[in-house]
Write a protein that binds this DNA or RNA. Structure first.
Lengths: 195, 195
DNA sequence: CGGTTCCTTGAGGATGATCAACGAGGGTGG
DNA sequence: CCACCCTCGTTGATCATCCTCAAGGAACCG
């Protein structure tokens, strides 16, 4: 949880329900609000002319998203849509910045959060630029693994989602993961991937 | 300038000279220091097995670098070397974090800095994943343009450097920029690129 | 069941990488 | 001043890889 919900409501935040695929933030829009997921999950992504998409990140229960443009006078670099039916709380930029001023501990938490984001984006860039499809997919799987790697977990993404995240095409993802199954790097049971 | 030099020295920072290509930070190292460029320029990058490199960023006069791992217990995701002979000031992690605590205005400046970094990395990822070589190069050129685009500027990077930044190969960069010259998107005078 | 979403496979093609060789400029030392 | 070296830029030929396009199958859900 980033900011306490009661605190947010005290400062005038309102929460809103979004149906799956509803647009929450549009690319290139000016940033006016702080957003935090109360329930559900949000996907940030870019589309290009061909309709090909690149996923910048998923933000689920309790996570905030779309904060960077609030700090620096820039527009949103990507679009955010509800990945599932979701409940999102939003607060005006001004009040959000005020909260940070009033609560140094919260400001510090955000500094840490931003540092995490940079770190993860740096790693993503590293893998995506240099490496072969299998490396990209492994990097994605590792980055999204919950546990410490001592046992295999169900991967909660479709092949299309993995493709969008790694910049590959679905067919390529499918072919690579079947090779990975053959090499025992992952398991596939009933079309579901375990890593 | 991120942090005032006098302040840094007061807190026990020391400065050090690095010759071109000297390693300042190694990938996967634990983060113990805050670094700030006093003079010169630093390059952060990753190498892969083939020796192919990907540039995460350049940090010049007055800019700090390698801060994210100081906030979150992670190792450096990349290596930093002096791009030119440089003078770098460094301060221990503990004292750096203490400075942030003592000077809220500095902490806020870092929050803004981190937000900028995320924004720029998000844009980089967007272009690199989706787009054709020409788009990648244009994105790189735009991101590094100083002025507002009303006139052409000398691009202070070699073709190899552009390749490292965009994840392309030198030969590809060369071929694409000659096409771009033909299309009047850039000028080339005496092998130098103007954009 | 019928529809929708997701997964799978094959064939063919485009594109960027790779490899090899050479040219051009700038700086250095004899 | 010239010879050398070193870095950077350039070009062509060939190759490997991933994308594209097309078609169909499997799973899931109302």
């Amino acid at each position: 949880m980033q900011i306490d919900l009661d605190l947010l409501y005290t400062w005038g935040a309102i929460s809103k329900e979004f149906k799956k695929n509803d647009v929450i933030i549009s690319e290139d829009e000016v940033a006016h609000f702080y957003y935090q997921v109360v329930e559900g999950c949000v996907r940030m992504f870019n589309s290009n002319d061909d309709g090909k998409e690149f996923t910048q990140g998923y933000f689920c229960n309790g996570q905030s998203f779309g904060e960077p443009p609030l700090f620096i006078n820039e527009r949103y670099p990507a679009t955010a849509v509800a990945f599932q039916d979701s409940k999102i709380i939003k607060l005006s930029k001004e009040k959000f910045l005020k909260i940070l001023d009033e609560y140094p501990s919260i400001q510090k938490k955000f500094l840490n959060l931003m540092a995490h984001r940079i770190h993860s984006k740096a790693k993503t860039a590293k893998y995506i630029i240099n490496q072969k499809p299998e490396f990209r997919i492994l990097a994605f799987l590792n980055a999204n693994k919950k546990g410490n790697g001592d046992h295999k977990e169900l991967v909660p993404f479709t092949r299309q989602e993995i493709a969008n995240f790694t910049g590959l095409r679905v067919e390529t993802v499918i072919r690579v993961i079947s090779k990975m199954k053959a090499n025992k790097k992952i398991d596939i049971v009933n079309h579901k991937i375990y890593f």
